[in-house]
């Protein structure tokens, strides 16, 4: 039983990171109809910025958090304005290719701006181990699960009750009609990119605290993408929960079926779920697959 509990807890912790990045995918898709293949790279860049702030300005957790969020907002806005907005009206395939190109550029920038060595993000918090009997959990892992749950609730409330959240839903449902109602689609897109960058950045920072930062970190995006497909590409909350499901499934498969099954299990789950629900567990509408 202890073995199972430990597997589930570890699965929830890594799944929460996948879930946050997956929510970033869904925020952009829901608002713009675009799959951003640079999501993992954006996660990595924000984590590197957080590490730079911690080593060159201040290691205070609040300073780093504020700086990282600010950097994430800027990153999202800059990408949307310079790279994505000029592609408005172009075929979806071309825009998706642009995000793939962006991913390669961001990935390469790590070596140009920083270096190839792994680094630890030491903020004095998140690395302590709390033990419940023989079960050990890092405080950072507890924090990332709590953050995911908080964001799930906050985003639900945002889309349900806030004016701007309703505007975003309107643009997602029918951008032409939304435009006729006086909603600026470009503004909605910009905010979506900034929000997506912040959510992914939070995941990156938590991952860096629990593990480390390295140029391989972008691969988190590859793990989070199945989570958003599983939850539903247009379902922000579903994507978050999809991350948790993928994390737990991977860990249980790795723990009971062997290491080799760990990476496969999530994809097997996706294949099965998509055969039953082609739009994901929580997906609601017809999704154009690319």
């Amino acid at each position: 039983m202890e073995y199972l509990v430990q597997l589930v807890i570890s699965g929830l912790a890594i799944g929460a990171i996948y879930g946050l990045i997956a929510m970033g995918f869904a925020v952009i898709y829901k608002s713009t109809g675009l799959v951003n293949f640079a999501q993992g790279e954006m996660t990595m860049i924000v984590a590197y910025v957080a590490w730079t702030i911690s080593t060159s300005i201040s290691g205070n957790v609040f300073v780093v958090a504020f700086g990282a969020i600010l950097a994430a907002i800027l990153l999202g806005l800059v990408i949307e304005r310079i790279v994505i907005r000029p592609m408005l009206g172009e075929p979806v395939f071309a825009t998706v290719m642009v995000t793939i190109g962006l991913a390669v550029i961001l990935r390469s920038s790590i070596n140009f701006i920083w270096d190839a060595y792994p680094h630890g993000l030491d903020l004095g918090v998140g690395r302590d181990i709390i033990r419940f009997g023989n079960i050990g959990v890092r405080t950072g892992q507890i924090a990332v699960i709590a953050t995911l749950l908080f964001l799930l609730a906050a985003i639900w409330a945002f889309f349900r009750y806030s004016k701007f959240g309703i505007a975003m839903r309107a643009v997602a449902a029918d951008d032409r009609t939304a435009l006729l109602m006086g909603i600026s689609a470009t503004r909605v897109h910009a905010i979506a990119w900034a929000a997506s960058s912040v959510i992914a950045g939070i995941a990156g920072v938590f991952f860096a605290i629990s593990y480390d930062i390295s140029p391989a970190m972008f691969q988190l995006g590859l793990k989070a993408f199945p989570a958003t497909i599983l939850g539903g590409l247009d379902a922000i909350l579903g994507s978050g929960l999809g991350g948790l499901l993928i994390g737990i499934t991977e860990n249980l498969a790795g723990g009971y079926l062997g290491s080799g099954m760990k990476e496969v299990a999530g994809f097997v789950m996706i294949v099965v779920v998509l055969m039953i629900r082609p739009f994901g567990i929580f997906g609601e509408r017809d999704i154009e697959r690319v």
């Binding site: 430990q6 699965g11 593990y211 970190m217 590859l222 860990n251 790795g254 723990g255 290491s259 760990k262």
Partner: peptide, 20 residues
């Protein structure tokens, strides 16, 4: 005896198996 996929970043289940 474990075999992980290149690019794997979370080794919680692998190390738990090692412990077991």
């Amino acid at each position: 005896s474990g075999n992980y996929k290149k690019g794997q970043q979370d080794f919680s289940s692998d190390m738990l198996q090692l412990k077991q």
